[in-house]
Design a protein around this nucleic acid. Structure first.
Length: 493
RNA sequence: GCCUCGUUCGUCUAGUGGCCAAGGACGCCGCCCUUUCAAGGCGGAGAUCACGGGUUCGACUCCCGUACGAGGUACCA
């Protein structure tokens, strides 16, 4: 019944940790599958055993989970088109490789890597494009038998048509035409018997009934080879969408070493997955000329493939930061506390509160602290730093910070003394109660509110920027606030 | 080198022949609000739509070329 529904796949290879650009392409496929009610399949392209990195798949799957993307068929959960690891499909590829050889579309190549290297060097010297010279394509039966008898190792190469053109129909770029003579005979099965991407993904996509292939546009150059293989096998070609890659600030393809964060880093910095999800959807895709804040459900509803652009987009962390702030502000206070707590409670070295602060944090108190900081936060990760003065016993600041613009140490001291006395005389420790008389005091002292309040702000927090002063003091508590003002009075004496 | 793709404000982008002397957002600047910092409101700078030719009554939108950028050119994906 889902037979004619779209089936999309994402096929990562576990050769490293996938960066955020990979998730963007994954997101597009996932969104479209969900938009159409089709299926989303995950397939692990692990044929390059030598480069496989331990744990890469798990981290990748965790990233999907973090971002809120599920899949209908794939590793762990399986599915009716499995297995979903290419290393477990080896026999399948060999079968089709054999079929291609039988039909004359592929051949065994016995060239050694030494010979190939020599050949390429010679081509480079003559400024020719490096291309396999098809030496083994034209071996006689006798030569072939001799090679086999000698037990030479071989690979399978796909025999590209020598003449003519291949047109790749791409839903984003339109038709792209290649001269067949520009494309050499690629290896499709290695000497260890494993198929390469060029063969494996075609066999899999076909057998798994994939209807839409979304992949990075760096695949365009090998796409003509793929259509030829589809043709040779007599299979229907899925719709191709070569989506633009996400670029780094230097406009180069993202690479983990270089300029791309992994989802783990984003999580550690305290970006919300829903913000990252929203942000990612907007690189290379746009709904209209103004809407850019979307919930997951909205995105699923409005996401279509025809709005994907053709040009590569740069990953702009500043905008992500802004969007994350928007999402944080939309959180209820309870949610904020719930989600910020783990960040605040991690070790100081990892960005948490100073280790001197006992864990676990008092929820009620943290909640009132976060209430004040809510609209000021851009990431969950920065919470600890910004609110630490609420939790710490000792404040560290330069005495000079107490002195506000247009003030001197003497007047500051005097102001603090008068403020202390006034505050001490208050019946209630609520900001509405503190503020009016404090304003009067400032006026009486001939000071601007900021001059008096600024000094107190530094006294109670050790900082020049905090949430509104009296609310801060209310949360900090009477004891602690007065003790800190007292200290400031001593320091400024 | 060869092949291919791409090119609208610094960045993400809207724009599918007239609605565009190009709209939104981030960032930046200024003003307002204001006890600081944010948030919010208002305003501003910022793109001769890479350049040059066509096609057309009319082009950011179609075609060709050039430049620049990127990708590919592996028994990697």
């Amino acid at each position: 019944m889902t037979e004619h529904k779209p089936r999309l796949r994402f096929a990562p290879s576990p050769t490293g940790f996938m960066h955020i650009g990979g998730y963007r392409t994954l997101l597009f496929s996932w969104l479209y599958a969900r938009h159409t009610g089709g299926s989303f399949i995950l397939r692990i392209e692990d044929t390059d055993v030598a480069r496989t990195v331990e744990g890469a798949i798990e981290v990748m799957l965790d990233g999907m989970r973090w971002l809120g993307m599920d899949y209908d068929e794939g590793p762990i959960i399986g599915g009716q088109y499995g297995p979903y690891y290419q290393t477990q499909r080896k026999a399948l590829y060999q079968e089709y490789a054999h079929q291609l050889i039988e039909s004359g579309h592929a051949y065994r190549c016995y060239c050694t890597s030494e010979r190939l290297e020599q050949m390429r060097n010679a081509q480079a010297a003559q400024k020719l494009p490096p291309r396999y010279d098809r030496h083994c394509r034209y071996l006689t039966d006798e030569e072939r038998d001799a090679n086999e008898a000698a037990g030479l190792k071989w690979v399978v190469r796909f025999a590209m048509p020598l003449e003519g053109e291949t047109v790749v129909h791409d839903e984003i770029h339109g038709d792209i035409t290649f001269k067949n003579s520009d494309i050499d005979d690629a290896v499709i099965v290695k000497s260890d018997g494993f198929a390469l991407y060029h063969l494996a993904h075609i066999v899999d996509d076909h057998l798994m009934g994939i209807t839409h292939v979304l992949r990075g546009d760096d695949w365009i150059s090998s796409a003509p080879r793929h259509v030829q293989i589809y043709n040779a096998l007599g299979w229907e070609i899925p719709l191709f969408y070569h989506v633009p890659n996400v670029l780094g600030k230097d406009k180069k393809k993202l690479s983990k070493r270089h300029n791309a964060p992994s989802w783990v880093e984003l999580k550690e910095k305290g970006f919300l997955p829903e913000a990252v999800f929203n942000f990612l959807a907007l690189i290379g895709w746009a709904y209209d000329d103004k809407t850019e804040l979307f919930t997951r459900e909205e995105l699923i509803r409005v996401f279509t493939l025809d709005h994907i652009g053709a040009a590569g987009g740069i990953y702009d962390q500043d905008k992500l930061l802004w969007m994350n702030g928007v999402y944080i502000r939309q959180l209820s206070l309870e949610d904020l506390v719930e989600r910020a707590l783990p960040y605040m409670e991690r070790p100081e070295a990892e960005g948490g509160l100073p280790d001197s602060v006992g864990r676990s944090l008092d929820r009620q108190y943290t909640s009132s602290v976060l209430h004040l900081e809510h609209e000021r936060l851009k990431t969950l990760g920065e919470a600890a730093e910004v609110v630490s003065f609420f939790f710490v016993d000792e404040l560290h600041y330069e005495t000079a910070m107490l002195v506000q613009k247009g003030m001197d140490i003497g007047r500051t001291h005097a102001g603090l003394v008068r403020a202390r006395d006034l505050l001490n005389s208050l019946e209630e420790w609520r900001h509405e109660v503190m503020e009016p008389p404090m304003r009067e005091l400032a006026a009486e002292l001939g000071l601007k509110p900021g001059q008096l309040f600024g000094a107190i702000r530094v006294a109670i927090s050790g900082r020049t920027a905090t949430p509104p002063l009296f609310e801060t003091m209310e949360v900090l508590g009477r004891e602690r606030s007065m003790a800190r003002i007292e200290q400031a009075i001593e320091r400024s004496a």
